[in-house]
Each structure stands twice: as structure tokens, then as C-alpha cells.
């Protein structure tokens, strides 16, 4: 009797696990993220954005210089 119950439990648990495997969730970039290298991409994006902002700031400084020159004249 115990053997029967035990085998039933094992069977059910096996079914449960296989059922979990078959219900596929939508594909996400899990592997990509688990490797941890997504940080590299983020760093690249952030550096590009910071560089653009730095460029914008230098443009703004040039504009400021021109404004000062014009106000002098």
C-alpha cells in the first residue's frame, strides 16, 4: 500500500514537473541577462549619451561666449 502511494506521489510530481516544462512562458532575454554582460551594453549606451550631453554643453558654452561678445559691442 505504501509502495503504491509512494509511486503515485512520484508519478504526480513527475507529471507536475513535466507540465511546468511544457507551459512555455514568452521568450525573454534571460540567457543574455544571466551571463551578466547586459551591463556592458548599458555602459556603452550611457557613455554615448554622456558624450552627446558633453558635446551639447560645449555648444552651449560657445553660445555663451558669443552672447558676451555681442553684449560688449
Amino acid at each position: 500500500m505504501i509502495k503504491k502511494i509512494l509511486s503515485l506521489v512520484l508519478l504526480l510530481s513527475a507529471l507536475a514537473t513535466s507540465a511546468q516544462e511544457t507551459t512555455s512562458s514568452p521568450q525573454m532575454a534571460d540567457a543574455f541577462r544571466s551571463e551578466g554582460k547586459i551591463y556592458v551594453v548599458i555602459a556603452v549606451i550611457a557613455i554615448i549619451f554622456i558624450a552627446l550631453v558633453a558635446f551639447l554643453i560645449t555648444i552651449e558654452r560657445n553660445v555663451k561666449k558669443l552672447e558676451k561678445q555681442i553684449n560688449k559691442d
Partner: peptide
């Protein structure tokens, strides 16, 4: 914008 660039790629999104 920097926050969204970084956290936008890291946070959990609906599957």
C-alpha cells in the same frame, strides 16, 4: 534619461 537608460534595461518587465 540616464536612469531610464540603465534601469530600463535592467528592471523586470511583463512577459
Amino acid at each position: 534619461i540616464l536612469y531610464t537608460l540603465v534601469w530600463g534595461l535592467l528592471n523586470d518587465v511583463p512577459r
